[in-house]
Design a protein around this nucleic acid. Structure first.
Lengths: 108, 108
DNA sequence: ATAGTAATTCAAATTATCTTGAAATGCTAA
DNA sequence: TTAGCATTTCAAGATAATTTGAATTACTAT
């Protein structure tokens, strides 16, 4: 295979393709990163994350603010929760959701 | 609607639901953020972004390193490009892709 | 017991995304 | 002008994510 010359030199300086591959994150890390990003790949989930970064809230208030159906909200909360962006704590009748440390990193 | 008491007080301190809603990012911003995250919601795309953050490369070398089919690679490059993570520059026979400033922010 | 509220779960339908192989584009060299 | 390489595009099929409404769980108050 031919390769553009300036690239060829730069690549060789880094130990060739082998050298570059060694500098790359592992597959597991790539999967993890992509999952984190997937959890924020929907505008409603970004909205919920930012909402909870302002103020921990019960599902009923999140629902009131976002104006989405119960089951839809529950689904998106579960995606955020499963990916470590938010966590929920039972408090009497309600479940109060709030952002995790990881979630805080991604709120605006 | 009833609301857990501590939450009720905190919400009122922030100007009620109205006050909280005012603190939220706009819909356009939420959409933009979700698109950015979507562009990194696939492990192959995270891999390509990180690869290019090490070293700008022609498509043929990205292909060699990632071992994916031409058309698949092209598709994922286009997603990254359309979302402003990478940019391509023609150089003679080849197109050299590299990360953008935005892309750099998201590489590991 | 009955009804009401908060929240989740489930399966079905819908929609979005990804993969594949073939065809196309554009460029270079013989 | 034919062949070859680098890359993209296209349409079809395959897979995955999201939405919906109904059912369910669990808890409280009547």
């Amino acid at each position: 295979m031919e390769i553009p010359d300036p690239i060829k030199k730069q690549v060789e300086k880094k130990g060739g393709l082998e050298g570059i591959i060694k500098l790359m994150p592992e597959e597991g890390e790539l999967r993890l990163q992509s999952k984190i990003h997937h959890s924020l790949s929907d505008p409603l989930r970004v909205k919920i994350l930012n909402l909870l970064s302002i103020q921990p809230l019960c599902v009923c208030l999140i629902k009131e603010i976002t104006e989405v159906a119960d089951s839809k909200l529950s689904y998106h909360l579960s995606v955020l929760k499963e990916n470590g962006m938010i966590e929920g704590e039972e408090q009497g009748n309600w479940i109060i959701y709030k952002t995790t440390k990881l979630g805080d990193k991604f709120s605006l």
